[in-house]
């Protein structure tokens, strides 16, 4: 499988409310990321818009339904459609999540948690290899946020990710907010997580907001509906100090999407923190 070269840049998710902004003017981002499934269609306006945006900017295809942790294997029709889109777009990266979404009977349309066992690792690796062979390219796999763990877990999530990357040659999409959310929910040290993942395999970082715990609910939830919180910014700065290669950093907002200038201002914050982190390392 071909290696994926590091990409240095800052981008946003391309969402419907901002289509006109991206079509009508030059938005100061280095790339956009789209939800693959929204464009795995036969034709119509969404694909035409994606084609036009692609003429201006690199595009990342980010999937939510491959279900690489599914013991029932991958959906071939899904892979065929993703491959058609990949050929059309020539994306910077193709990514999905370390999770499962379906059984052979039903689809949850949610990123469900995997037990961190050798059996699950073997299933995930087989599915990633299948997907990479089908697509003819290496993928990026994102660490999920999760709300429960399994009694039969045999390893930590960062150990699972490291072994997954080693066995399959895939790369990592590090979602710093997800690390923070899961660390809060499961009581581990987010910095220990960062120290444990193979950072040389990281090609992209996601930043997002989450819903804090409240009376009656101790779990914090990955909702992508608000600004990145200070604790996640601090974790991002720490990650940037640890990383020795450039990465693509992105702000992910999927709900209560604000006007584009607000997201661009937040992205400027990421640029500033990344620059300061690198300066600190150099000093």
């Amino acid at each position: 499988m071909n290696a994926i070269a590091p990409f240095n840049g800052f981008g946003l998710g391309l969402r419907r409310t901002h289509y006109a902004d991206f079509l009508d003017r030059d938005v100061p981002v280095d790339f956009v990321e789209v939800i693959s499934e929204n464009f795995m269609v036969d034709g119509g306006r969404p694909l035409r818009i994606l084609d036009e945006v692609r003429e201006k900017l690199p595009v990342i295809l980010h999937g939510v339904s491959m279900s690489i942790g599914s013991a029932h294997g991958l959906d071939t029709e899904y892979l065929d459609r993703l491959k058609r889109l990949e050929r059309r777009v020539d994306p910077l990266f193709v990514s999905d999540h370390l999770c499962w979404t379906r059984t052979s009977a039903h689809n949850s349309h949610d990123l469900l948690p995997l037990p961190l066992t050798e059996e699950a690792l073997e299933v995930v690796c087989a599915n990633i290899c299948n997907a990479q062979d089908h697509l003819g390219r290496a993928m990026l796999i994102e660490n999920p946020s999760s709300y429960l763990t399994f009694p039969q877990d045999e390893m930590r999530e960062w150990e699972f990710l490291a072994e997954m990357a080693r066995r399959t040659g895939c790369y990592l999409l590090l979602d710093v907010n997800n690390i923070y959310v899961s660390a809060q929910n499961h009581g581990f040290d987010a910095r220990e997580y960062l120290a444990g993942v193979p950072l040389d395999r990281v090609r992209q970082i996601h930043l997002a907001g989450h819903t804090p715990a409240e009376d009656g609910r101790e779990i914090i939830i990955d909702t992508h509906d608000r600004e990145v919180c200070d604790a996640v910014w601090e974790l991002y700065a720490h990650a940037m100090r640890l990383l020795s290669q450039p990465v693509a950093t992105m702000i992910e907002r999927d709900d209560k999407i604000p006007p584009l200038p607000e997201l661009l201002a937040e992205l400027d914050g990421a640029r500033r923190i990344a620059a300061e982190a690198k300066q600190g390392v150099a000093a």
Binding site: S70, A71, H72, W100, R102, T103, A105, H106, S108, D110, L112, P115, T117, E119, A120, V123, F150, P151, Q152
Partner: peptide, 17 residues
């Protein structure tokens, strides 16, 4: 769910969801 193979675990888990 403690000792279930992954396929069984996922079927049971999704039924719960």
């Amino acid at each position: 769910m403690a000792a279930a193979p992954l396929a069984d675990l996922q079927t049971t888990f999704l039924a719960q969801v």
